[in-house]
Simulated assay, not measured.
Amino acid sequence: MVTSIKGGEKAIDASHRIVSKRRRGDPTVANLSVEQVREQLSLAVDRVMNEGSLYDPTLAALAIKQAEGDLIEAIYLLRAYRSTIPRFGFTKPLDTAAMLVRRRISTTHKDVPGGQYLGPTYDYTHRLLDFSLMRKGEDADGLPVEVEPDEATLTLRHDGGFFSRTDIIEAELPVDDKPVADLTREPMNFPSSRDQRLQNLARGDEGFLMGLCYSTMRGYGRNHPYVGEMRHGDVSVVVEIPELGLEVGIGSVKVTECRTVHLTTGKLDTAPHYTRGYGLLFGHSERKALSVAVVDRALRGGEFGEEKSYPAQDEEFVLSHSDSVQASGLVQHLKLPHYVDFQAEQQLLKQLRDDYDKRAEQAASKEQDHD
């Protein structure tokens, strides 16, 4: 028997109060501030800014606190807020070559012009719990915490090594004046353009994209990419003021840029060569930037005469299912009341079972007549 759930608005209000109480937790424990989230959970903040399509570390930290650490819910909150903000202008394209680099590596060459800088990374840590972090007011060595100077920054131009000056690798695409798509205001179209795809991937769920990236290297594509360059740092944001004929810097943003290279056998009229994948994201987001670059290259297969036979090469599959907010919305709506739908389905099921019983009876009757 199916019964209705009663309560309505009062039950929802009570649920909100319970959520607030749970969010606060034990009142004897110090309340977590937005500033603490922003400064000490920076990688979570960076993810929320990327998938929320809004560069604002403080608001992203607020969303994380409000969502009790549920990053997908925080992303939803940030997107909802962004949709209410008026747009008053457009910035010039970011010049990542002029980035103040905090970290820069290349896996294709040991020695690259300007050198490699490990910077902040977990790549070489021992994945062991550091229980010293549980001690209040002390660092990992048990000493009082002192404010460390920020990591050094420097400017390094892009350089892909010797092959960037030959025809062994795909040439950089020229910059043009065509309007750039804006997925925050216009829906995705298929077939998609590369600017639409890169925006969609930047907003996509990190875990989903990483799984697709993994699939291209393991049985669903013959793709082993190399990191031509991965860099993280600060880039100036510049706007043009037409009335004055000036370009003015209005601030800077932290970004992560990844350029991958992929061996491509080429078309019949093209010699085998290396092709490129690209990812550019807010904050320090190396794992996702690498995943975006690899999936970007997989989606470009048609440009190089490759047969579309794997999930990561199917743009409708990738781009339509990579958005964490849309995916979460459809999945979580299953928790909402479906009384009418379920009752209609029960009626359909009863009719199907009645038809089945009739066919069974007819079959049994025919068998008796035959005997």
Rank of each mutant, 00 (worst) to 15 (best):
P57W: 11
T96S: 05
R82A: 15
R287V: 01
L173K: 15
D150I: 01
L183F: 10
S132Y: 13
R194T: 09
L246I: 10
H224F: 10
G142K: 05
I18G: 02
D26A: 00
H273R: 12
E367C: 05
Y81H: 13
Q346E: 06
V37A: 09
N200W: 07
E361T: 10
V248C: 10
V101M: 00
T265F: 00
Y278I: 07
L54G: 02
Y55S: 04
A61E: 02
G25F: 06
L183M: 09
L281Y: 10
G251N: 07
Q368G: 00
F190C: 06
L154I: 01
K110C: 02
D296R: 06
T260M: 03
R157P: 01
G115C: 01
S20V: 03
A11V: 04
E146I: 11
F162N: 04
E247D: 15
E316T: 08
Q347S: 11
E170D: 06
T28K: 12
L336W: 13
P144I: 14
A360G: 03
A30L: 15
C258L: 11
R104Y: 13
S33Q: 01
G228H: 08
L62I: 00
P337M: 05
G302K: 11
I241F: 08
A327I: 01
R82V: 10
D123S: 04
E9H: 09
Y124E: 07
L299I: 01
H126A: 13
M230G: 05
V340K: 14
V253T: 06
V112L: 08
S33P: 03
K335H: 15
T28G: 06
K10C: 03
R79A: 13
P337A: 03
E286D: 10
S322L: 04
R38G: 09
A360D: 06
A97P: 04
Y55H: 11
R102L: 01
E35L: 11
A202I: 00
